[in-house]
Design a protein around this nucleic acid. Structure first.
Lengths: 170, 170
DNA sequence: TAACGCATGTAATACGTTACATGATTCT
DNA sequence: AGAATCATGTAACGTATTACATGCGTTA
C-alpha cells in the first residue's frame, strides 16, 4: 500500500490540499506514482484519523490543507528503511516498447516515431522545470532527481532514434 | 486493460502455458508488466472464448499450451498502433528514490546503498542474459531491448553511486 | 451572468493480490 | 516414500478507475 506513503512524502515536503496532491501525481511525480482524487480524499481522511496527517489550514471552497505529523514522518521513514521494496512494475510504455517487435518494420517505425515525439517533449518539459528550479535557487532536495531524469531522457531519445533508423532500413 | 495485450504479445512471440507466462512476468518482463497466475488463467480462458488465443497442445499435468490466433495478432497490432498509451505509472522504486530525500543523510546513505546493491545485481543478471542470448545466436527481435536495459542500468548505477557519495559527505 | 477552474466527496465497476484448494510429475 | 516443483483453478479481499454529484470563487 504505497499510496499513503506517497501522500505522506508529499505532505512532509510541503503541506497541501487533496487537489494539489492529485496535481503532483499528474505532474512531476507522473513517472513515480499516480492516483486520482477519488482515491486521495478518502486516504487523507484515514491518515488524519490515524494521526499521521493533520489539517493545518482551511481555505476557500471548503478546502483543507493537510500536513504530515511527527508520527507521519516517522511512519514514512520506517517504511523507507525497514520494508522490502516491491520491484514488480506495471509500465505500459515499457510493455509497448517490448511488443513493438511484433509489428512489421513499417508499422514499427510509425509507433517508434510517436514514442520518440512523446519522449523528446517530456525531456523538453523536464529541462524547463530544471531551469525554473535553478532560477528559484532551489538547490537541495529534489535537484538530483531531475539530473537522473535528464540522463534517462537522453538514453531514451538516443535509443528510440536508433530504433527508428533501424526500422527504416529494414 | 493491458494484461490481455501483454499475454497476446508473449503468445505471439512463442506459445506457452499459463505457468510459463507467469514466469515471464517474474523474469525478463519484470520491468514492464506483472501478473500472477490467478489473474492469468481466467484471462487466457477469456482470450480463447473470444478467439484471440487457442490451445495448441496439451502436456503433462493437464497443462494447456496457448498460442495467439490471427485475430489475436491483429488485436495486438491494433492496440499498439491505434490506442493512446497510458503514461501514468506506479513505480515503487522510483517513488522510494524520490522520498529518500525525506531522510537524514545517514539513513539516506543506508537506503541508497541497498538500492545500489539491488541495481548492480540486476545489471549483472541482465549482462548474463545478454551473453546467453548472443551465444544462442538470437540476433533479432528483443536484442535492442537488452541494449536499452544495459544503458539504463549504467545510468542508475552511476547516479546511485553519486548519491551515496553525496550523502556520505553531508 | 455564464463559463471555467477549483475543490471535495460517493458509488459502481474493474482490476489485482493473497489465500485456499487440488492434483500430477520428477527428483532424491 | 517424501519433498519439491509443475500446473491449474476459485474465493475473498483490497486497490484503482470511471462515473456521478455538488458547490464555491474568479474572470470574461
Amino acid at each position: 500500500m504505497s499510496l499513503r506513503h506517497a501522500l505522506l512524502g508529499l505532505l512532509t515536503w510541503k503541506p497541501g490540499t487533496g487537489y494539489e496532491l492529485a496535481q503532483a501525481f499528474e505532474g512531476s511525480l507522473i513517472n513515480a506514482w499516480h492516483a486520482s482524487h477519488s482515491q486521495i480524499y478518502p486516504e487523507l481522511a484515514k491518515l488524519e484519523a490515524e494521526g499521521l496527517a493533520e489539517v493545518v489550514g482551511e481555505g476557500p471552497r471548503r478546502s483543507k490543507t493537510y500536513a504530515a505529523t511527527g508520527a507521519g514522518l516517522e511512519e514514512l521513514r520506517r517504511w523507507l528503511m525497514e520494508t522490502e521494496p516491491n520491484r514488480a512494475q506495471r509500465n505500459e510504455t515499457a510493455l509497448r516498447w517490448f511488443l513493438v517487435y511484433m509489428l512489421e518494420p513499417e508499422q514499427r517505425r510509425a509507433v517508434l516515431e510517436r514514442e520518440y515525439a512523446f519522449v523528446s517533449a517530456a525531456a523538453a518539459e523536464r529541462r524547463a522545470l530544471a531551469a525554473q528550479f535553478d532560477a528559484e535557487g532551489k538547490t537541495g532536495g529534489f535537484r538530483p532527481l531531475l539530473e537522473l531524469g535528464h540522463r534517462m531522457d537522453a538514453v531514451f531519445e538516443d535509443w528510440l532514434r536508433e530504433q527508428v533508423e533501424a526500422a527504416r532500413k529494414t
